[in-house]
Each structure stands twice: as C-alpha cells, then as structure tokens.
C-alpha cells in the first residue's frame, strides 16, 4: 500500500468513525446537527446550493436514511423560519406573500432542496 493510499484509508476511517460518533452518541449528534444547520444557513444566504448542502449535512448526522429525510425537511422549515424573520425585519412579509406563486416557489425550494441533499445519508 502506497503512502497516499494509506492516508486516504486513514482519512476515510476517521470520517467513518466521526460519522458513527455523531450518529450514535447523543451529545455529539446535537452538536453536529447544530453545526450542520448553521453551515447550511450561512451558505444558503449566498447560493441556493446551500439548501442542498444544509440538507446533506443534517442528513449525514442522522441515524438512518428515513431520519435523514426528516432532518432535511426540518432544515427546510428552519430555512423558511429564518427567511420569514429576515422579511419581518425588513417589513417585507406582506409584500413577499402577495407575490403568490413566486413566494410559493421559494417555499417549495426551501423544502425540496434540503430533502434532496439529505439523500447523501444513503450514500455515505
């Protein structure tokens, strides 16, 4: 086995161990989940891929794929909550709601993209 292959195997093992830890141990799980939400939200403010990333991260710390999907949906709801709060602060809730289908499109994106991302739990 070459050095680089050894390093990759080592990293893979470490990630695997880390994932097992956040999936199985309560405290690491919640810390991991919180971090995943924060990272997902921050990236979501600059690009829509943040919604997928957030869904993927909260999915990866979930104990199972069904739980990951639920976590992805939950992340989507958090995104909607944060979006609503930012609109409250800028006094734009009513105006955004009045856009009707366009706002609806945003809601659908907030829920679908993170669930899509949470499929990553089934891969890793």
């Amino acid at each position: 086995m070459t050095e680089s292959k050894k390093d990759t195997a080592g990293l893979s093992a470490a990630v695997g161990a880390g994932l097992s830890l956040v999936r199985e141990e309560s405290r690491p799980h919640w810390v991991g989940l919180a971090l995943a939400v924060v990272v997902g939200l921050v990236v979501s403010t600059v690009h829509w891929l943040g919604l997928v990333l957030g869904g993927a991260l909260v999915g990866l710390v979930a104990a199972s794929l069904p739980r990951a999907l639920l976590s992805g949906l939950g992340f989507g709801l958090v995104v909607l909550l944060v979006w609503w709060l930012t609109l409250v602060l800028s006094d734009g809730v009513g105006k955004v709601t009045a856009t009707g289908e366009l706002a609806g499109l945003g809601v659908v994106m907030a829920l679908v993209a993170p669930v899509l991302g949470s499929l990553a739990r089934g891969v890793f």
Binding site: L41, S44, T45, V46, H47, W48, L49, G50, L51, V52, V79, L80, V82, W83, T86, L87, S90, G92, K95, V96, L102, L105, G106, V107, M109, A110, A113
Partner: peptide, 24 residues
C-alpha cells in the same frame, strides 16, 4: 439545478439567496 432552466428560477426565487427577494 445548475444546468437546466431551473437554475434561473433557483437563482431568483430560492429563499435567503434568491435575487428577487434581495429587492425586499
């Protein structure tokens, strides 16, 4: 999302990052 016409919709209407909501 990146390569089809959906990209344009996501760029404009995604919550938090959508360019349209930036006008708020």
């Amino acid at each position: 999302g990146l390569l089809t016409p959906a990209s344009s919709f996501l760029e404009r209407f995604a919550p938090l990052s959508g360019s349209v909501w930036g006008a708020a």
